[in-house]
Amino acid sequence: MAVRISSNDGVMTVFLEGDIDHHTAKEMRETIDLNVNKSNPNLLNIDFEKIQFMDSSGIGLIMGRYKLMNSIGGKIKIINIPNRLEKMIKLSGLIQLGIFE
């Protein structure tokens, strides 16, 4: 399983692992959304430390979860982005959202 989730006091942290592409993003998205919809956290942290590779599907994954958290009145933070993913993050323009730590 490429997704591990811990939840505590309204804060949910999702630890992703491996590669994010169109194929793997589907399972990640479904697992995250299922858990968010179950417990409606105030804050969703998504940890990218163990992501080895990511194409623009990773950007779609972040955008979709940003919208989901907005729709339930919560916040999202993207944490521990490795250097190897920075080029993709910069290109996406998502930095403007202020969700990266």
Partner: peptide, 10 residues
């Protein structure tokens, strides 16, 4: 909504 539209830009 899950596609970023960035494929060619990348």
């Amino acid at each position: 909504s899950e596609r970023s539209g960035l494929g060619f830009a990348v």
